[in-house]
Amino acid sequence: MYKVQKIYKSYGELKVLNNIYLEFPKEKTTCILGPSGCGKTTLLNILAGLIPKDSGEIFGFEGDKSYIFQEDRLIPWKTVKENLEFVLKGKMDKNRAQEIIDNYLGLVNLEEYKYYYPKDLSGGMRQRINILRAFIYPSKLIIMDEPFKSLDINNKKILMDFFVDLREKDNKTCIMVTHDIEEAISLGHRIVILSEKPSKVKRILDLENYKDRFKLKEEINRELKNGMIVIPLNINT
């Protein structure tokens, strides 16, 4: 289990995260929803080790982890293959890396783009490589910051299916920040709703307990709109 306890974070006088307790079940996808600017990305960046927390404890995030960014963050002067090789360097020998890259590219029908440069790929295709990079990387955990945000509806659907295919193959633990309730319901096993700044965990929903997706969506909507009420959580730490 990946776990965070009593996480606090402020930027100067501005309190962003206020006593965050969370557990992320292994091999499941946890989606974090919350109002704009409530500190979802800050929380992800703390989990990824990109920014320091003010206080609190983090368990299980020490090892290698993958990150799917909002933007593709591909190196422009490297081909698709070289971009993928770049993150595998030093993690395994060259032949093994080659084998994995070929295997994954074949699996998702992207072999023909192996020697393409990012500028020759569409936005959706580049984002697919961004997702593929996260799955190819030998980690058990994938952190995702609104990976489908900048895509049109068609590409979003294609990429969400693409993500689900890869997730089913690898059984990785995924933590995803999103604004989109539909996206969270489609991809998540658990949904965490954060409150307005300074953010607290407002509600945790395990999706297996909800058979009626429409009601679930209504409930999440209600929680997100109802910014003033904070439902206390009992988490055994």
Partner: peptide, 13 residues
């Protein structure tokens, strides 16, 4: 900087 951050997250030497 975003590319450098990517390299940092993926622990590139």
């Amino acid at each position: 900087n975003k590319i450098l951050e990517m390299a940092r997250v993926y622990n590139v030497n």
